[in-house]
Computed example of a mutant assay.
Amino acid sequence: MSSLQDTLYNWLTIKVVADVRVDDTAAQDTVNLFYEVLTEEHGISEITVKKDEQMYEVSYVLQGEQKRTRFPVELIDVMLEQMEAEPEKFINYPKEEENDEPTN
């Protein structure tokens, strides 16, 4: 299991991408996976995010206690910026429908 800090960092980084790329199925699936790890493995709830010019602040409840952690904007936004700079490297493939037969 990853540390809570590492999982928050990974979740927030992909959440920023998923919020902008709402049709990106990989980003949506990944943000949901990290959210499940945060809530089920780490036991946190009531996760909120605030952003100012320099920092992201993630607030959450852990074992009944309000907690918060901060991450520099440039550290979190780097993946989104890379995707925007080189979109040809980050193609979104549509999710296969359950009734669709795989193509070989």
Score class of each variant (00 low, 15 high):
residue 1 M to F: 13
residue 2 S to P: 08
residue 2 S to I: 05
residue 2 S to K: 09
residue 3 S to A: 09
residue 4 L to E: 07
residue 5 Q to Y: 13
residue 7 T to I: 07
residue 8 L to Q: 06
residue 8 L to C: 09
residue 9 Y to N: 13
residue 9 Y to V: 09
residue 10 N to R: 11
residue 11 W to S: 12
residue 11 W to I: 14
residue 12 L to R: 02
residue 14 I to L: 06
residue 15 K to L: 14
residue 16 V to L: 08
residue 17 V to T: 14
residue 17 V to R: 06
residue 18 A to C: 03
residue 18 A to S: 15
residue 18 A to P: 03
residue 19 D to S: 14
residue 20 V to I: 12
residue 20 V to F: 01
residue 21 R to C: 11
residue 21 R to G: 01
residue 22 V to I: 15
residue 23 D to R: 15
residue 24 D to V: 13
residue 25 T to E: 11
residue 26 A to N: 10
residue 27 A to C: 09
residue 27 A to W: 01
residue 27 A to G: 04
residue 28 Q to W: 02
residue 29 D to N: 14
residue 30 T to K: 13
residue 31 V to E: 14
residue 32 N to R: 15
residue 33 L to P: 13
residue 35 Y to V: 12
residue 35 Y to K: 15
residue 35 Y to M: 15
residue 37 V to R: 11
residue 37 V to H: 01
residue 38 L to H: 04
residue 39 T to P: 07
residue 39 T to M: 13
residue 42 H to N: 11
residue 42 H to D: 07
residue 43 G to F: 02
residue 43 G to L: 13
residue 44 I to V: 15
residue 45 S to Y: 05
residue 46 E to C: 01
residue 46 E to P: 01
residue 47 I to A: 04
residue 47 I to M: 02
residue 48 T to R: 08
residue 48 T to Y: 07
residue 49 V to P: 00
residue 49 V to Y: 07
residue 50 K to V: 15
residue 50 K to A: 15
residue 52 D to F: 07
residue 52 D to T: 14
residue 52 D to A: 12
residue 53 E to C: 03
residue 53 E to V: 15
residue 53 E to G: 10
residue 54 Q to F: 13
residue 54 Q to H: 09
residue 54 Q to R: 10
residue 54 Q to I: 12
residue 54 Q to Y: 07
residue 56 Y to P: 00
residue 56 Y to H: 06
residue 57 E to T: 15
residue 58 V to F: 03
residue 58 V to Y: 02
residue 59 S to Y: 04
residue 59 S to F: 13
residue 61 V to G: 01
residue 61 V to K: 12
residue 61 V to L: 09
residue 62 L to V: 02
residue 62 L to F: 06
residue 62 L to N: 09
residue 64 G to R: 04
residue 64 G to C: 03
residue 65 E to P: 00
residue 65 E to M: 02
residue 65 E to V: 15
residue 67 K to C: 10
residue 67 K to L: 08
residue 67 K to M: 10
residue 68 R to N: 06
residue 68 R to T: 08
residue 69 T to N: 10
residue 69 T to L: 11
residue 70 R to D: 00
residue 71 F to G: 04
residue 72 P to T: 08
residue 72 P to H: 09
residue 73 V to P: 03
residue 73 V to A: 04
residue 74 E to S: 07
residue 74 E to N: 10
residue 76 I to N: 04
residue 77 D to W: 07
residue 77 D to Q: 06
residue 77 D to S: 09
residue 78 V to D: 14
residue 78 V to Q: 12
residue 79 M to H: 05
residue 79 M to I: 06
residue 79 M to T: 05
residue 79 M to K: 14
residue 80 L to R: 05
residue 80 L to P: 00
residue 81 E to P: 04
residue 81 E to L: 13
residue 82 Q to W: 04
residue 83 M to K: 02
residue 84 E to R: 08
residue 84 E to H: 00
residue 84 E to L: 14
residue 85 A to V: 01
residue 87 P to E: 14
residue 87 P to N: 03
residue 87 P to D: 07
residue 88 E to G: 02
residue 89 K to D: 05
residue 90 F to R: 00
residue 91 I to T: 10
residue 91 I to P: 02
residue 91 I to D: 03
residue 91 I to C: 01
residue 93 Y to R: 05
residue 94 P to Y: 05
residue 95 K to S: 09
residue 96 E to H: 07
residue 97 E to T: 06
residue 99 N to F: 10
residue 100 D to A: 06
residue 100 D to C: 00
residue 102 P to T: 03
residue 102 P to L: 04
residue 102 P to F: 06
residue 102 P to E: 02
residue 103 T to F: 07
residue 103 T to W: 05
